[in-house]
Simulated assay, not measured.
Amino acid sequence: MTSSSTHLSDTFLQKLVADIDNETVTAIILHGSYARGNANPPYSDIDIVRITRETSERHQQKQFIWYDSYLLNLSSRPLSIYKEWLRIPQEAIFRLSTIRDAHILLDKEEVFHAFQQEISHWTWSSLQADADAYASRLLAELSEVILRTLGAIHRGDTTMLVERICLHILPAVMEAVGVQGGILARGNHYLQQVQETIGLQSAWTQYYMQAAGVSSSPLSIEQRGIAAIRLYQETVSSLASHIQPEHMQTIEILLHTIDHLLQRKEY
């Protein structure tokens, strides 16, 4: 066992492994900021996964516990779940780096090491068609949220606007762009990765930051709602060639509705 970070000693890791190991565990891995070597204690948690033996239930568990003054993010799952995630684009973009960058603390049967070697030649291309379909479906499913956001703007319902912007529109458009583009997560700054890929000065990035309330001048919640609507339009425009036929009509009618309602309010 080797120290995975200057912030976590071999002694600490050995004690941790001994405390969380049991007969169902085949491997224990460290990932996240401590594995990458850019942890910021005391503000970083320790991300640990116990790889468990395969069972018919394929049980997963996650818990947060305090361990020697560190917050421990402890997950348990069989290796087959990782393999399944790498076949699902919206999972693969976030999971691949976890697997590749993981530091092995215990590997009783060398199974996790073999898995890391196996995915060293993994490529995104086999997931692209599913990624296109997933992003297209996200944009179609946002139709209801966009309509309700327009209604909230019309009524001046600030509470609903905050909810729709922060909990629905911003996460969904980021995911749609990230998944369709195969932007694989590196660390904890995924939004920054997406914005850098699209362009930090692009209309998409500008609308995103305005909707999030981060702009050079203060914006009202209504203005942020308008920016979120424009962000949706910009996302559709950038992914237009990947929208699936079964979603096309829903999205096109929504775009016409947006133009009609916003023009009526002279935005």
Rank of each mutant, 00 (worst) to 15 (best):
R100M: 02
S125L: 11
A176D: 03
T123G: 02
I153Y: 00
H121G: 08
R164W: 12
S125K: 09
S136H: 09
R155Q: 07
I99V: 10
E118T: 13
L150N: 11
I153E: 08
R137F: 00
P171A: 01
V162S: 13
A129P: 01
W122F: 12
E110P: 01
L138W: 00
A114S: 14
T98Y: 03
T158W: 04
S125N: 08
L150R: 10
H121K: 12
Q128L: 06
F115L: 09
I99P: 00
R137M: 03
L142R: 06
S143F: 01
V179R: 07
A176F: 05
W122P: 01
D101A: 05
H154V: 02
M174I: 15
H113P: 01
A172G: 05
H113Y: 09
C166A: 11
I153F: 00
Q180C: 14
L138T: 05
I146H: 03
L167Q: 13
L139Q: 14
A114R: 10
I119G: 02
E141N: 13
V179L: 06
H121V: 14
H154S: 06
D107W: 09
L147N: 13
D130R: 12
Q117D: 10
A172S: 15
L106Q: 07
I119E: 04
V179A: 07
E110N: 14
E144K: 10
A135N: 02
T149F: 07
Q180T: 05
L106D: 00
Q180G: 07
I165V: 15
D132T: 04
L139W: 11
V179K: 09
I119T: 02
I169R: 04
R148F: 09
L167K: 13
H121E: 08
A133C: 07
H113R: 13
V111Y: 02
G181W: 06
R137D: 04
R137T: 09
I153D: 03
S136I: 07
V177D: 00
I119S: 02
L138Q: 11
Q180F: 03
T158F: 06
T98H: 07
I146N: 00
V145P: 01
Q117C: 11
W124R: 09
T149N: 14
T159E: 05
H168W: 08
S120N: 14
A114M: 06
I169E: 00
C166V: 07
Q116G: 08
R155A: 05
A176C: 05
P171G: 01
A176S: 11
A135I: 04
H168K: 12
L170Q: 14
L106F: 03
Q128N: 10
I165D: 00
H113I: 05
F112H: 04
A172K: 07
A172D: 10
E163I: 13
Q116K: 15
L127A: 01
D101Q: 11
T158E: 15
D130E: 14
G182H: 08
H154N: 09
E163A: 13
E144L: 10
A140Q: 06
M174D: 04
M160K: 06
Q117G: 13
S136A: 10
W122A: 02
M160N: 13
P171I: 03
A131R: 06
G181N: 12
E118L: 09
Q117P: 02
W122H: 03
V173K: 08
G178C: 14
G182C: 05
M174N: 10
D101K: 08
T149H: 12
